[in-house]
């Protein structure tokens, strides 16, 4: 059991503002994914989101959609990703969560999936197509497996924020903008006001902002309001461009982002 060899999600937010990168497992290969995790940790990442690819990722923009296609056409499966994550856990105690879609977990068998994820030493799970109303189906077994099911709030959540934040575990994923994942030239949502509602409802839960954050300036601005920033598409874009040679490029980018939010 490698369970002991991991830090808590909470610990990711104890060294100042957290930088949370997302990558799709198996894009371009599981070997590179593994290297990317180590390199991102060295570059300052505080928590890693590992995407398990899904054939039809309805919350993703074109960049991460393409990463899913690349990974799946390379023959990546949930079982192979478990093997890889298990190897990674032997080498690092950095908090790690899986990000995937409800069907990947449900179809595998929710308990079976969570048994495997706990066995590896994963800390949590993000399912963007499971809103508060459906949370119990996955949230209860997650708790039984000592994993946090990460809740999301969006610019449209309004009065829902209170309920969601109160019930949140691990950290709260604050979606910065309408629409799907992807880099944006600007973020117009009043994220400060969103986070204020979160704090009122649950002063304990760390709040991280994601969707559309692609450069150090935006990351810095977002980090003023929140406890951390989540960056996916901007990193996946670099991986798409550099493929097997992307490790150093990604590490440089992560370092620049982490420096911007310190």
């Amino acid at each position: 059991m490698s369970d002991a060899n991991k830090r808590t999600i909470r610990s990711a937010f104890e060294r100042g503002k957290a930088f949370i990168p997302f990558i799709t497992c198996g894009d371009p290969s599981l070997e590179v994914t593994e290297e990317l995790v180590y390199a991102m940790e060295d570059a300052g990442a505080d928590l890693i989101e590992l995407g398990i690819p899904f054939s039809d990722p309805t919350a993703e923009g074109p960049v991460i959609q393409s990463a899913n296609v690349r990974a799946l056409s390379g023959g990546v499966t949930t079982d192979k990703i478990f093997d890889m994550a298990g190897r990674i856990r032997k080498n690092t105690d950095i908090p790690m969560v899986f990000m995937t879609y409800a069907n990947v977990v449900f179809s595998y068998g929710t308990d079976r999936f969570l048994d495997a994820a706990r066995g590896i030493g994963m800390n949590g799970l993000i399912l963007p197509d499971v809103p508060f109303e459906e949370k119990e189906e996955f949230g209860t077994p997650c708790r039984e497996h000592d994993m946090s099911l990460i809740s999301l709030i969006a610019p449209t959540s309004n009065e829902r924020i209170k309920r969601i934040a109160k019930d949140a575990e691990g950290f709260l994923y604050c979606v910065s903008s309408l629409g799907v994942t992807g880099t944006r030239s600007s973020i117009t949502t009043d994220v400060g006001a969103m986070i204020k509602l979160v704090r009122e409802a649950n002063p304990e839960i760390p709040a991280a902002i994601g969707f559309g954050i692609s450069d150090p300036a935006t990351a810095g601005k977002m980090a003023e309001a929140a406890d951390g920033v989540i960056v996916g598409s901007a990193i996946v874009k670099i991986i798409a461009e550099y493929g097997n040679k992307s490790v150093k490029e990604v590490a440089d980018f992560v370092k620049s982002m982490k420096d911007a939010i310190r």
Partner: peptide, 10 residues
């Protein structure tokens, strides 16, 4: 059920 992103719930 309602398995959709939070953005669409309202």
């Amino acid at each position: 059920g309602q398995y959709i992103p939070e953005t669409l719930m309202n």
